[in-house]
Amino acid sequence: MKANYGYMDGSGEYYITIDTDPCNDCADHPCVSACPVGMFEIIVDDYDDEVAAIKEENRKKVKYDCAPCKPVTDRPPLPCVKACPADAITHSW
């Protein structure tokens, strides 16, 4: 399952997508500790898979919460994306 967390508002589209199939196979979920804001949590989803998800309190402000990782120029690789061994995390912006 592709789980898209985030939103779209008048200013643009801000979604973090987690591909839950490879994520379910990942043992350590290193994304959780990689994110400086602590946005990720491990949940048991509706289909009983153990997967990473963006915390409820961050979902409506991912654009702002991720801002430190996304400087306007010279953007380095995102810590969460880099940490994920399964390439399960993508950002729409």
């Binding site: 654009k63 702002y64 919460d65 801002a67 430190p68 996304k70 400087p71 306007v72």
Partner: peptide, 8 residues
């Protein structure tokens, strides 16, 4: 502020 931080 989060926008300001993006430019530094």
């Amino acid at each position: 502020i989060s926008m300001v931080r993006r430019v530094g």
